[in-house]
Amino acid sequence: MGMLDNKTAIVTGSSRGIGADVAKLLAAEGAAVVVNYRQKAPRANKVVAEIEANGGRAAAVGADLTSQDGVQALASAAMENFGSLDILVLNASGGMESGMEEGYALKLNRDAQVNMLNAAVPLMPEGSRVVFVTSHQAHFINTVPTMPDYEQVARSKRAGEDALRELVPALADKGITLVVVSGDMIEGTVTATLLDRAAPGAIEARRAEAGKLFSVQEFAAEITKMVTADVESGHTEYAGGSEYFGKGAGN
């Protein structure tokens, strides 16, 4: 018996990286998992196949979270495939990719997060949990400057966090809690790779400052823990290196 038996989770942006590992860990605890992807169906199908091979339940669902149709389809997929929706992990983010429209970072990192939550809430019973995944560089952007190449993304993610926090009272009325998980730079993520490409040496410098950076697997484990952690709604969980940013700075 797992801690999440008879629960259903949506993990946005879960065809690879942190999201994929979170999906696998949730499935290992008994949750049925909706594995979300935007374009790379084979990657998502691979995650699903691995979960199923280990005795879990999962379904791959393609959805562009920057469109209202996408968020509605993703929320509905949980009900259609597994009959419930109890956990929403808001992991998808971006903004450093090349060729994206102007304002894309804010559209994905703020607007899509709120829209996804609003689409999910009517389907979620009392006791459900929402987990928003962010970075220290974004969470502390108002008090600690970040690298110029990441500032736009950091500010858009902080805007997303702020917008979600404004919904905490409304979520409380429905018995739903929101937890924020903030991590330092994570070794091996797409964002870290793009950032190091834009600012060579950025990852090595941050590793030297922090002493250690979390791996994808380690950070995914921290996120997964917060799905069932006994904490108040609005709690921020810091994963590695927060002392450098001033952990006492509050939310």
Rank of each mutant, 00 (worst) to 15 (best):
A112L: 01
L117G: 03
A20M: 06
L4F: 07
T8W: 10
M96C: 07
L117W: 02
F140A: 08
R158S: 11
E187W: 02
E243G: 07
G211R: 00
V133A: 10
L213N: 12
Y244N: 10
L213G: 11
N6T: 11
A192T: 13
G56F: 09
G62F: 02
A59I: 09
G250V: 09
G103Q: 07
Y238S: 03
A31E: 10
A112E: 03
S242Y: 06
G201E: 13
I51D: 11
S156Y: 00
R207G: 13
E161D: 13
E101D: 15
G234E: 14
Y37F: 14
D173T: 04
D111G: 00
G248I: 10
G175S: 10
S135P: 01
T134K: 04
Q152R: 12
N91A: 05
L108D: 05
A170H: 06
P169K: 08
A249H: 14
G2T: 04
P148G: 11
M79K: 12
A59V: 12
P42D: 15
V22W: 00
P169L: 12
M116Y: 01
L90C: 05
Q72F: 02
L88N: 04
R129H: 06
N118A: 12
V34W: 05
S14A: 12
G175K: 09
E102W: 02
Q113C: 03
K107W: 00
L171G: 01
G250L: 14
V179E: 14
N115F: 03
G248W: 15
N36E: 09
G94Q: 05
V153W: 10
V11W: 08
V144Y: 03
V231Q: 13
E126N: 12
V144C: 02
N36P: 11
R129Y: 03
R158Y: 12
I223D: 14
V47P: 05
A229N: 13
S242H: 13
S156P: 01
A159R: 00
M226Y: 10
M79N: 12
T236F: 08
M124Q: 04
Y37E: 11
G201F: 12
I203L: 15
V33P: 01
A75R: 01
M185G: 04
G246Y: 09
R16E: 15
P169H: 07
L25E: 15
Q137W: 10
A210S: 13
A44M: 06
S15L: 01
Q113D: 06
A9H: 04
S93C: 11
A138E: 14
L213H: 10
E52C: 09
V227P: 08
V153Q: 13
A120N: 01
T66S: 14
T146F: 00
L85C: 09
A78W: 01
N6W: 03
G234Y: 04
T66I: 13
E209H: 07
L195Y: 01
M100Q: 14
R165I: 03
V61R: 08
D86F: 06
T228L: 00
E218P: 06
A170M: 11
A44N: 09
V153S: 04
K7I: 09
A208L: 05
N118R: 14
